[in-house]
């Protein structure tokens, strides 16, 4: 009997302290990891979307509040036209599929996007990432038009074998549309706003 109690106690204490220590380390490293992901996963997507931008989207990044969480905005401009890119999520099979959506702020049209996959262990990402034709379907469309895959009666061709992920991308883009609709003003990069001085 004493043995069993000892076993249970040792196992409980061990797993408890293990989970505790890991949670602690996670909190400590979280900010660093976030920055690394920003740099290695999001930056390439942002750079691709913002090709030819007059300002550096990474350097100018800022955060706004959206539905109780922080959203990182990467601002840019091409030929004086302000744009913004930010990441939204849709539910995939396992956790969220992240999509970096780049918008023109004057017309509300999508100028480019890239799948970033956020919570997944990298290396074996989702198939959407390797399929540029899928992503190109969204280009030039108004972000608020509401996207659906063909199976659900929409106009987006899903990637074969990855319908759920394709659906998740549509949800993420719709989310971006909502952000645009609600917080249009806040998406403007502060620098541009300050420069022309009209936002006193």
């Amino acid at each position: 009997m004493k043995n069993i109690i000892q076993m249970v106690v040792v196992l409980t204490v061990l797993s408890g302290s293990s989970a505790g220590i890991l949670a602690g380390i996670r909190v400590v490293t979280m900010e660093k990891i976030e920055y690394q992901q920003l740099k290695f996963q999001k930056e390439p997507a942002v750079r691709k979307i913002m090709e030819g931008s007059g300002m550096d989207p990474m350097a100018g990044r800022f955060k706004i509040d959206y539905q109780g969480r922080k959203l990182t905005i990467f601002p840019g401009e091409i030929d004086g036209e302000p744009m913004a890119a930010f990441e939204t999520f849709g539910k995939g099979y396992s956790g969220d599929v992240g999509v970096m959506v780049g918008l023109s702020l004057s017309s509300g049209r999508i100028i480019g996007m890239g799948v970033t996959t956020h919570s997944e262990t990298p290396g074996i990402g989702s198939k959407v990432k390797d399929s540029p034709t899928f992503v190109d379907q969204f280009k030039g469309e108004p972000v608020e038009s509401g996207f659906k895959v063909r199976n659900d009666g929409g106009g987006v061709d899903a990637i074969s074998g990855a319908t759920i992920t394709s659906r998740a991308v549509c949800v993420a883009v719709d989310e971006a549309g909502k952000v645009y609709g609600e917080l249009k003003e806040q998406l403007l990069p502060t620098k541009i706003a300050a420069k022309d001085g009209s936002h006193e």
């Binding site: 995939g92 099979y93 262990t121 759920i164």
Partner: peptide
Amino acid sequence: CLMNINEEYD
């Protein structure tokens, strides 16, 4: 097991 999770299988 890890691959199954990463590949988002049902």
